[in-house]
Design a protein around this nucleic acid. Sequence first.
RNA 1: UGGGGUGUCGCCAAGUGGUAAGGCACGAGACUUUGACUCUCGCACGCGUAGGUUCAAAUCCUGCCACCCCAGCCA
Length: 559
Amino acid sequence: MKNYDDIKPSNFIEEEILEDLKMGKSKEVITRCPPEPSGYWHIGHCKAWMINFETALKFGGYTYLRMDDTNPSREQGEFADSYLNDLEWLGYKPKDVIFASEKYFDKIYDIALNMIKNGYAYVDELSQEKQLAMKGTLTKPGQNSPYRDRPIEESLKLFKEMKEGKYPDGSMTLRAKIDMSHPNILMRDPIMYKISREHHYKTGYKWCIYPIYDFAHPMEDALEGVTYSLCDITFRVHREVYEWFIEHAWNKPFAPKQREFSTLNLENVLLGKRYLKALVNSGKVLGWDDPRFMTIVGMKRRGYTANGIKNFIRSCGVVASESTIPFNALEHYIREDLNKISTRAMVVLDPLKIVITNYKEGKTEDIEIDNNPNDDKAGKHKALFAREIYIEKEDFALDPPPKYNRLTLGGLVRLKGAYIIKCNEVIYKHNGEIDYLKCEYIENSKSGNDCSNIKVKGTIHFVAVDNAFDCTIRIFKNLTKLDYKWPSKALSEGVSLEEILEPNSMIEKMAKAEKFLLNANAFDKFQFMRKGYFILDKDSTKNNYIFNFTISLKESFKV
RNA sequence: UGGGGUGUCGCCAAGUGGUAAGGCACGAGACUUUGACUCUCGCACGCGUAGGUUCAAAUCCUGCCACCCCAGCCA
């Protein structure tokens, strides 16, 4: 047996696993990610497979990616493909990719046959309505189906005929014979198979009977050799059914264990598959990978990093109690990672022109900008200083609020990487708006060899007119109004999508970017100094660079 | 109301009978050619509640309260 002494469990599930391993109750840790290919994965799912992958990894085991495609009416191949990409982006490698429909349907059918032979299952001819009526309620026990005690041979024959297509959809089901008066309603003879002639994206029309989750899932786990089936707390009440099927249908030496953890709930985030789908179909968003979506592909396009997302999820812990986490907790971990890896650049989002009156016309000087001041290995890149430059409109104030560190009329400010300037005059347009500023530069104040002895309070970013190109910036706000902390819940309670959606949650505007950014490739991440983090969107062309706003910098200055 | 689950700082969360870790948020200060980053300090005489056991209880016992999940031929 392996030595597990140096493994420290970090949550209640790992504690139990460690104990099992030490006691020899299980030999290895094999887990699974079992998506139903009926939508794109989002940050909530991310937690589930992180736990499955990382738990297995911790104990030297591995994880399967298994498409839980047992319901032909909901599933599509498009989605199955997306999971592999998502997983790769997040840095996880499954031991194998399995389609339950292809690999296990025959075996599950055989298991069902066996269960009938052993008296644990029967074919029921009750309609769906009748079954429901006889199921009882939360407080009242159910009643046995009149078909419950039919001879084993009869059930066997009928079940085989169900498979052969002799009976119409919905006319019969295979049910487990458990206990119609069980206090757990899921244990009241759960359905194991239904009849459906819908087309299945993987197996076509090969099958007309399909196993139901409660039966299929434990069997798939067992057939795969999964030892720990880690899922979210929704399935806690299903555990009893899971264990019943394992006990009555699986007589191999090992048995998989199902354990549950709470789901990840984020404030102000819309995750419901049907709502996202509606938005995608309506054309109101850019697609499943819209940067406002917290789908994996959406977050990737937004500029979030896999590490940031994973660090955030780790920070939430693995527990059984439900919680809702404020969005700024996620943002903290995204910023933390972006700060380490993103290249700095100067981009003016809302330009105000300045003419340096005492700087010679036509003259330019190279200046150097650190690609990342927190990373010595990141190097520097060149920018330009010239007579005409742009600064951010909000970095100049005629009537500055208290503690304003930026440019004012008659005041001094440092231009990042270049000179200290002083504003002497404001030139107005006919309509009274500011046209441009006349400033002078302090000659011996250049960054690197400043001997001016002048101390300024503020440093602002800028781009030289000659070193700038126009680019498109996409600014995002939360998809839904902030008043709705739980948008999916509000929607399910009848509030309309239109009401919940934040108007203009995506705004496009033009900005002046330094030419260094012309080298960027799609998905490259940048910090536009003093403004925030941005990522070059995949829709960009040579003639139109589009930068998606990922997240702002923290801002402690408040007017 | 049957069954299951959960209650520790504004939000997460450690804690497993020996006197309340940590993170986020927030507040104060230092540093700063990004009002970023970084750093320092502060932030629960209290662990849903009422009793009990004990020298000692968030941890053990009993009662109560609150919230969440379950009655698809969905997963």
